[in-house]
């Protein structure tokens, strides 16, 4: 096999057969780029996926709009009913698109409701109004804020109760772990939502009660996952080494566990959020969550559904916002999962 492998006679410089100085040998080597830290790699992978990035931007935008609106849209502006403006469709000045120009389809014809009801020329509602003449746009923004508050609360309890419970259970092991796992087992043999509903029945319906109910019911998946991961980390060599060197449990948890748990914690939080948003909308929709005069996306859907046949926009707008919110958080979760665990992105 040798003969055929002969390379064509190479052209060499005159002093080719001198030894190669050390530094030249080094420079001959292709210097690979500086190695990146774990988080840098995660960030690079995250940025590669459009859906994750776009979702992240949408989530940020929604947060900014919802919370930034507080001075203009709050409880006092929300309750004001203006019967003269009731059930107006969307009208955006300058837009002449049926459905967004104050017209609505009645008996197969587009009718300008603003004109028909003698609404002043300069008065308009970009997302229309509800049956009490309240601006739907304002109510949707407020409802989104409620959804986001619920989301943040759920995330907070996930990150505190869920993580701490999981770490303790996994780290202590033995009897402590056993008892803690039994508790989770019992709590999770009642559907989460039933727990929430029972609590809402006992407490007065409203945002506070929803928050308490979520606090009690939302952290269990996180606790399970963190426990499983802690269990496997606990027996890893570097943790064993730290333990045998007598480092305190607390220090080990801070130095070794939390950084290694961070990916599953972040990913799980991203999945808790949409399910909390769903819970709130669900409860308000069936009438035991947020109640009038406050509003939320679930309340708006419930109200919109009643008139869906005649004024479909009253349900479509909050429905679209809710779906976008859910999709954005789910995609953000997927994006982060793929960024943290490249194997999942295959």
């Amino acid at each position: 096999m040798a003969e055929e492998a002969q390379a064509p006679q190479a052209k060499l410089t005159e002093n080719a057969f001198e030894g190669l100085p050390k530094d030249e040998a080094q420079s001959a080597e292709n210097i690979a780029g500086p190695s990146l830290s774990y988080m840098q790699n995660v960030w690079i992978r995250f940025k590669q996926k459009t859906s994750g990035v776009v979702s992240g931007i949408i989530v940020i935008l929604m947060i900014v709009i919802a919370f930034g609106s507080t001075p203009f849209i709050n409880k006092s502006t929300l309750v004001k009913s203006q019967p003269q403006y009731a059930n107006l469709p969307a009208k955006i000045p300058g837009v002449n698109l049926n459905g967004l120009n104050g017209k609505i389809k009645q008996n197969g014809e587009w009718v300008d409701v603003y004109e028909k009801n003698n609404i002043p020329k300069d008065k308009y509602f970009i997302a229309g109004t509800d049956y009490l003449g309240r601006s739907l746009a304002q109510r949707i923004v407020y409802g989104t804020k409620i959804s986001l508050i619920v989301a943040l609360v759920a995330a907070f309890f996930d990150l505190t109760i869920g993580v701490i419970y999981g770490v303790i259970s996994g780290w202590k092991g033995g009897a402590v772990d056993n008892v803690m796992q039994r508790i989770i087992e019992i709590v999770s043999s009642v559907p989460n939502l039933v727990i929430v509903i029972l609590l809402l029945v006992v407490l007065k319906p409203g945002l506070k009660s929803i928050i308490i109910a979520i606090a009690i019911s939302s952290w269990m998946t996180m606790a399970r996952q963190v426990r499983a991961e802690t269990l496997s980390l606990k027996n890893q060599e570097y943790v064993l080494a730290a333990r045998s060197l007598g480092e305190s449990s607390w220090k080990i948890a801070m130095k070794h566990l939390i950084p290694n748990l961070s990916s599953i914690i972040i990913i799980q939080t991203m999945y808790t959020i949409p399910s909390a948003i769903f819970f709130e909308a669900f409860l308000s929709f069936i009438g035991i969550g947020i109640s009038a005069p406050e509003t939320s996306l679930g309340v708006l859907l419930n109200e919109g559904q009643k008139n869906f046949q005649f004024l479909p926009y009253q349900m479509w707008y909050p429905a679209v916002v809710l779906c976008v919110l859910m999709i954005a958080f789910n995609l953000l979760g997927d994006g982060l999962r793929d960024a943290f665990d490249p194997k999942s992105a295959r």
Binding site: P274, F278, A281, F282, L301, L322, C323, M326, I327, L331
Partner: peptide, 11 residues
């Protein structure tokens, strides 16, 4: 499947 997961069943 993302849409199916995200759109609430009551909607």
């Amino acid at each position: 499947s993302i849409i199916g997961k995200s759109v609430p069943n009551f909607v």
